[in-house]
Deep mutational scan, measured.
Amino acid sequence: DYYKILGIPSGANEDEIKKAYRKMALKYHPDKNKEPNAEEKFKEIAEAYDVLSDPKKRGLYD
Rank of each mutant, 00 (worst) to 15 (best):
N37Y: 06
D31R: 13
P36G: 11
N33L: 11
P30A: 14
L52F: 01
I5K: 07
E40F: 13
K18L: 14
K23I: 15
G7R: 06
K34A: 10
K19P: 01
I5H: 01
L60D: 14
E40K: 14
E47A: 05
E14A: 08
E47H: 04
D1L: 01
K27A: 15
I8E: 00
A12M: 01
P30Y: 07
A48W: 00
L52V: 03
S10T: 03
I17Y: 00
K18D: 11
M24A: 11
R22F: 14
L26T: 15
M24L: 12
D50C: 08
A38G: 14
L60R: 12
K27M: 12
K27E: 15
L52T: 02
L26I: 15
K43F: 14
E16N: 06
K43A: 15
L60E: 15
E44F: 10
K32P: 05
S53K: 04
E35D: 08
N13S: 09
E14S: 10
N37L: 12
L60F: 07
L6F: 04
P9H: 11
D31C: 12
E35R: 10
A20M: 04
A20R: 03
Y3I: 00
K27N: 15
S10G: 08
K56H: 04
I8L: 12
P36S: 09
G11M: 05
L26G: 12
S53D: 01
R22L: 15
Y49W: 12
I8Y: 00
P30Q: 10
G59R: 06
D31T: 13
K4T: 09
L26N: 01
V51K: 15
L6I: 03
Y61I: 10
K19G: 12
Y49K: 03
G59I: 02
E35Y: 04
K27C: 13
N13M: 06
V51A: 04
P9G: 07
G59D: 05
A12G: 04
K4L: 08
Y2R: 01
A48N: 00
E35W: 07
Y61R: 09
A25T: 13
E44R: 09
Y49G: 06
G11E: 09
A48C: 01
I8K: 01
K43P: 03
L52K: 01
